[in-house]
Computed example of a mutant assay.
Amino acid sequence: MLSRLLGVEMVVDVAPGVQVWAEEIPGPGEPVLLVMGADAAGLTWPDELVDRLAERHRVIRYDHRDTGRSTHAFDEAPYAIRDLAADAVAVLDAFAIDRAHVVGMSLGGTLVQLLLVDHPDRLWSATVFCTASLQGDPDLPGPDPALLRLWGELTDERDREQELDWRVEHWRLLNGAGVEFDEAWFRELEERIMEHSGREDKPAAHAAAAQDGLERDLTENTVPTLVIEAPEDPVCPPPHAAHLASTIKGATLVRIEGMGHAIPPALATPLAEAILAHTAAVG
């Protein structure tokens, strides 16, 4: 079951007329900023993971623009993916955080790579997983065709129950076959995100956001960086993680067996342990 964490909520101005919702979960150590993937609210970071990280760190998660309780206005005020990286810095500023350990999943891993280049002075460490290198490689495998077909339905009209069913099926494919799929847990997660957001439609703005300015060179990186390999990831399958680690100077590669492109309860603890081992080594 999902627990309800008691955190401090904040609304952060990131651009004229644009605000993002953020939540701080108190903890004893240096702050950890969690940066979620495309079109995913901050509550997609499961409480099981956040609770474990909060045993050692002050943890902050937030809703990207056009997700959760943040401003939904892409059609009126379009932005680029790189602007979402600037939003992460604005969240740190709002909580008066000079430096943080930053963790990014999927698109969040892209944003963390941008932070490594543009704002290394704001990072104690970086952890990225289920993401691709900003340097790219045309020979690496692409997403599972079944996912591509499902993504073609992203903006189709659905009522609430149909939308829940679609999201659960999406998680089923993302979860992969490495660990048993907990359908009830993912359905409860999405019900909670709908309640948090006050919306039942599937966010889709990030797929339309401009992607210019994303090609970066991390061969001179100075921030301790952990790359986590998810061997069952249907979006960025192996050897994406190994390639990513090879493009970031000094990066460490750790494999979590059974992990796909999701954080089910069975993997929250090993994922937390990998992150905490990295932050402890840096500290």
Score class of each variant (00 low, 15 high):
residue 14 V to T: 10
residue 16 P to H: 02
residue 19 Q to S: 15
residue 19 Q to H: 13
residue 22 A to R: 07
residue 27 G to S: 03
residue 30 E to W: 02
residue 32 V to Y: 00
residue 33 L to T: 08
residue 36 M to R: 06
residue 44 T to V: 13
residue 44 T to S: 14
residue 46 P to S: 05
residue 55 E to F: 02
residue 57 H to K: 01
residue 57 H to G: 04
residue 61 R to C: 01
residue 65 R to K: 00
residue 75 D to M: 10
residue 77 A to H: 14
residue 79 Y to R: 02
residue 80 A to V: 01
residue 85 A to T: 05
residue 85 A to H: 03
residue 89 V to L: 14
residue 89 V to E: 10
residue 97 I to W: 09
residue 98 D to T: 13
residue 98 D to M: 02
residue 100 A to K: 05
residue 101 H to F: 06
residue 105 M to K: 09
residue 105 M to P: 00
residue 107 L to D: 10
residue 110 T to A: 11
residue 110 T to W: 05
residue 110 T to K: 06
residue 111 L to A: 09
residue 116 L to R: 01
residue 119 H to T: 12
residue 120 P to Y: 09
residue 122 R to D: 09
residue 129 F to G: 05
residue 129 F to C: 09
residue 132 A to R: 13
residue 135 Q to H: 13
residue 138 P to C: 06
residue 144 D to C: 05
residue 149 R to K: 14
residue 153 E to H: 13
residue 155 T to G: 08
residue 158 R to C: 03
residue 162 Q to M: 09
residue 164 L to C: 03
residue 165 D to I: 11
residue 166 W to I: 07
residue 167 R to D: 12
residue 169 E to V: 02
residue 199 R to E: 04
residue 200 E to F: 08
residue 200 E to W: 11
residue 203 P to W: 05
residue 204 A to E: 08
residue 206 H to C: 00
residue 207 A to C: 03
residue 211 Q to Y: 12
residue 213 G to Y: 08
residue 216 R to D: 06
residue 221 N to P: 09
residue 224 P to M: 05
residue 224 P to A: 06
residue 226 L to S: 07
residue 228 I to D: 00
residue 234 P to F: 06
residue 238 P to F: 10
residue 249 K to S: 15
residue 252 T to E: 15
residue 257 E to T: 14
residue 259 M to W: 01
residue 263 I to L: 13
residue 263 I to G: 02
residue 271 L to D: 03
residue 272 A to I: 12
residue 274 A to Y: 02
residue 279 T to E: 04
residue 280 A to L: 13
residue 282 V to W: 07
residue 283 G to A: 15
